[in-house]
Design a protein around this nucleic acid. Structure first.
Lengths: 333, 333
DNA sequence: GGGCTGGATGTATACGTATACATCAAGGGC
DNA sequence: GCCCTTGATGTATACGTATACATCCAGCCC
């Protein structure tokens, strides 16, 4: 069944049916109503593939993330998908999950599907797939790569705002030895975050002990490993910032097992503010990165590039801010 | 750029290019190689919309879940997507997130996209959208609805296997008063699970105190509310089963706050075995529902229906089994 | 009343692919 | 040497839509 069947029954042409379906103002209200009734009655569903072929675009966007089971990303997906669904656009999602070849393949599949653009939240990024996107004029929006170009926008995470708040908070609580557990090194996003930490420490007049800078993996296991190393040190920090909340949860877990009360013996600050942060024990003081705002910015950036394929990319920014809960307290003497 | 451009440069017809792309055996190896080289060199990406239009199907599947931030579902998505990506198929995902109208719209969008079938893990289900699917011959596979038909398969969760193990475990530990915190009532899946619990209790020779049957919402908050009611009772159960792990986590959290040591004062058993279960404190004894196996069964069921659209649906089953960790122990005297 | 304007609708076509069917060459059997 | 088979390739077309362009008609101005 297609538009022509609808047209025949409604005694109009298929062009008119198409116009009704796309909300053209050119159709007389009475005619439109008649067509709509036939569509309803026949339960006609238009063929999106034909429309995409004709139109050259598929009214869908690709979304690539590193790990869907990380709550930060699943919460992001929820917002992203919701915003796009309101605009009647689909999301083609790909979660890499530490499969090396995943990204190349995912991008290819999305290009085959004629997505209007791709949101890339993965840190690791090769130049090959990006070239393919540029070559085929597919807009790309990345997170915290701080690189823009034709058809390529970026959304920077403004780590400094939250980090500064966090350090003022800890400094005011009397902490002088403050450590940081980062993400996997080599990723730009990890570097930006760690640099923001170092700057924020200096800003409140403290120094950074390199031994207090540890590496994690953005997962619980990384936080656990890092805090164990820290507990083994003779001189320890009294407070810790982490690259994300999962890392902080790993830290809390080991501290709990080791009989280190939080925040009495140790203050811990997370990053992201995933929903879980408010639910673990003790509720996590963390730097909130608003998912809803981030998702909205991605959509804005994508639509801007999709509308005008020759547009130069923009650099966007999303701020972070401190949310104080119960995992931070006065420094032990 | 299209197949004809490739064809011209490779000095073959577009039909041959199409055959090469689809791995037809009809092409001479030397010719295929030549065509492949041109494809590579031109970085040609085929147009999936055109293929879908011509072929009538889009080589993608729809996936509808109630809440992507529930780890059970995000872990399922990961497996589901991974299995389909290996078969070069895309996933169109929709998370309902308590939006009432979401399902109808999601299904419609998927039909417009010509999905080969839809996996529906949402509990609430109206007949309207299902009719639309049947009417358009779109295969549907549901979870634990125990209803099949033409183009409609179901995957039942075999609650009994795990529930029986759990009750034997608790009974052996000396527990005699055992409670259950279910999901939202009225959903078939909640009913099946609760009934399995009641049967399992009777099976070990105990009786079910109706006051020990509480209702949750499959989220942490539901577990919290239910355990608070239970703590307020004069005669309390000594052990609790829950409809999923998030509910159990809510229970653990309130017990911890209330100074009730687990498992000394209370034994708690979850359901699902999400990754978090092994990470919270104490690690959760739970009924494992293998996500990988569930996802694989969904794919099998969908492909079976997609291959033969006139096929009658099948009833599949996925078992559960007890994973003992540290949230269960001997009953208090 | 003739010509013009603009709104409403119809006609015709291109989008890129997969495949049925046609064609052609080579080889084998007699 | 001729016919048939088989393998390899080419030709032609339909899938359902959106839209440029054509058409038609009513109303209006002078």
């Amino acid at each position: 069944m297609d538009q022509r069947d609808v047209a025949r029954i409604a005694r109009v042409s298929s062009a008119t049916v198409s116009r009704v379906l796309n909300g053209s103002t050119l159709v007389k209200p009475a005619t439109a109503e008649r067509v709509r009734r036939v569509i309803e009655q026949l339960r006609f569903i238009p063929n999106g593939s034909a429309a995409a072929l004709r139109y050259g675009k598929s009214s869908s966007y690709g979304l690539i993330i590193p790990d869907i089971t990380n709550p930060f990303f699943s919460e992001f997906i929820r917002s992203f998908q919701e915003i796009l669904a309101d605009r009647n656009r689909d999301v083609l999602m790909a979660s890499l999950d530490h499969h090396a070849s995943g990204m190349q393949e995912s991008i290819r599949r999305m290009m085959v599907r004629q997505v209007n653009g791709i949101a890339l939240l993965a840190a690791e990024i090769e130049s090959g797939p990006i070239e393919a996107l540029v070559h085929n004029r597919v807009p790309l929006v990345t997170m915290d790569r701080r690189l823009t170009g034709p058809g390529l926008s970026d959304i920077a995470i403004h780590n400094a705002s939250g980090m500064n708040e966090a350090l003022e908070h800890l400094h005011a609580l009397g902490h002088r030895r403050i450590g940081y557990i980062g993400g996997a090194s080599g990723l730009t996003i990890s570097d930006h975050r760690q640099n923001a930490f170092i700057k924020a420490v200096k800003r409140v007049g403290l120094t950074v002990d390199p031994a207090f800078l540890r590496e994690g993996n953005y997962r619980i296991s990384g936080g656990e490993a890092a805090i164990q190393q820290i507990l083994a040190m003779k001189t320890r920090p009294t407070a810790l910032l982490t690259a994300n909340d999962l890392t902080a949860i790993g830290v809390l877990r080991v501290l709990h097992k080791s009989g280190c009360p939080v925040p009495q013996a140790f203050s811990v600050v997370g990053f992201d503010d995933i929903e879980l942060s408010d639910v673990i024990y003790p509720p996590l003081t963390t730097l909130r990165l608003a998912r809803q705002e981030l998702a909205q910015t991605f959509v804005t950036a994508l639509e801007a590039l999709a509308t005008d394929p020759h547009a130069a990319g923009n650099q966007y920014t999303v701020r972070t801010r401190l949310v104080v809960r119960e995992s931070t307290g006065p420094a032990p003497r």
